[in-house]
């Protein structure tokens, strides 16, 4: 099993939309290695033909008539927004 490198952690952080500070990155790399090494014990288990569990109780699709209901009040939805304008969430410009 290849060890997780500093570059791997940087790539994972990018996927997760996180910055990892310089002084955190060594520690994160080491800890992730410890945890994943430990997780290697699972490789000893024979799981040939075993179905993965995604949920513990039987889930079925729930059907109901398509009747419109009152939604959440729009102004209320902006109550916790850091920035909004004219009924829209506001973000910095996406294109330079």
């Amino acid at each position: 099993m290849a060890r997780i490198t500093r570059e791997d952690v940087e790539r994972l952080a990018d996927t997760a939309r996180l910055y990892i500070l310089e002084d955190e990155i060594e520690q994160m790399t080491e800890e992730l290695n410890k945890i994943t090494e430990y997780a290697q014990t699972l490789q000893k288990v024979d799981t040939t033909g075993v179905e993965p569990t995604t949920h513990v109780i039987e889930l079925t699709n729930i059907m109901r008539d398509d009747i419109p209901e009152e939604g959440m009040d729009r102004d209320l939805l902006f109550k916790n927004a850091p920035d909004h304008e004219d009924g829209q969430f506001k973000v910095p410009s996406v294109l330079d």
Partner: peptide, 8 residues
């Protein structure tokens, strides 16, 4: 693998 062991 973890989901399979979860089944076991």
């Amino acid at each position: 693998k973890a989901q399979q062991v979860r089944t076991l």
